[in-house]
């Protein structure tokens, strides 16, 4: 499996650390309530198909990356720096 780091280019999967769904970018306000926080920390859409998740180029430049890809075919559609997606 190969992933294109927006900074470093196409690299082997072993350079990256996977965290989970890109929902992690949307941190609720502290007072958003238990349901919003449960949604954020625990519950997942977990699609069989197109998804966005967060990878960390740990053995490379240290960028967190939003990877849009398919969980069934493992095709990677696009990658974007998380700090851009998060703004």
């Amino acid at each position: 499996m190969r992933i294109t780091c927006p900074i470093c280019g196409e690299r082997d999967r072993r350079e990256f650390y996977y965290q989970g769904a890109a929902v992690a970018l949307d941190r609720p306000a502290p007072d958003a309530g238990p349901q919003a926080w449960d949604d954020y920390v625990h519950l997942r859409d977990n699609p069989a198909g197109r998804t966005c998740d967060l990878w960390f180029h740990e053995m490379g430049c240290g960028a967190w990356i939003v990877v849009e890809r398919d969980t069934v075919t493992h095709e990677v559609y696009s990658t974007e720096l998380a700090e851009k997606a998060a703004r």
Partner: peptide, 13 residues
């Protein structure tokens, strides 16, 4: 393999 997947197959790492 550590990435979300429904592929029922893995990769080399």
């Amino acid at each position: 393999d550590f990435y979300a997947s429904y592929a029922a197959r893995g990769n080399l790492p």
